[in-house]
């Protein structure tokens, strides 16, 4: 079995970050977590898009992380499309994790199977931006 590790990087990021039309107060803007996993579903929807990613843990089990990002309108300006990632794709994602410990976060960057890095617009916008 491939040993995909959940690499956690603690970073002190001096920004009050978020990217939603609503506040992203439930996410920890001071931490980054890198997830490697398999795409279950890409919800290309308003008000925000969601990446459902199945991530294996150290014991060989896995769980699905729900990662929130910007609206399609905003992501299109950043080079995304509804078909830029597909179920089954192996993906690396950096997130700001949820403060309550649930498997979720807000997307900081996404790397596609062919090595492209995609960013959400306004990753460091003031809370409640778009």
């Amino acid at each position: 079995m491939r040993k995909t590790m959940l690499a956690m990087a603690i970073a002190a990021i001096a920004v009050s970050a978020a990217q939603a039309h609503h506040s992203f107060a439930m996410f920890d803007a001071t931490r980054s977590v890198t997830l490697k996993g398999t795409l279950v579903q890409f919800q290309w929807t308003n008000p925000h898009s969601w990446v459902e990613l199945q991530v294996p843990d150290r014991k060989g089990a896995s769980r699905t992380w729900s990662i929130e990002t910007s609206s399609p309108l905003v992501l299109k300006r950043q080079g995304w499309s509804r078909s830029v990632i597909k179920p089954g794709d192996r993906i690396t994602i950096v997130i700001r994790p949820r403060k309550d410990g649930a498997p979720g976060g807000s997307l900081v960057s996404l790397t596609t199977p062919d090595g492209r890095t995609l960013l959400p617009a306004g990753n460091d916008l003031p809370e409640g931006a778009n």
Partner: peptide
């Protein structure tokens, strides 16, 4: 100028912004 009246210096188009 971005989404804030209280800090109108943050643009919308560039995509990356520091804190307000």
């Amino acid at each position: 100028q971005g989404v804030l009246f209280s800090d109108p210096t943050k643009g919308v188009a560039s995509g990356r912004h520091p804190g307000y």
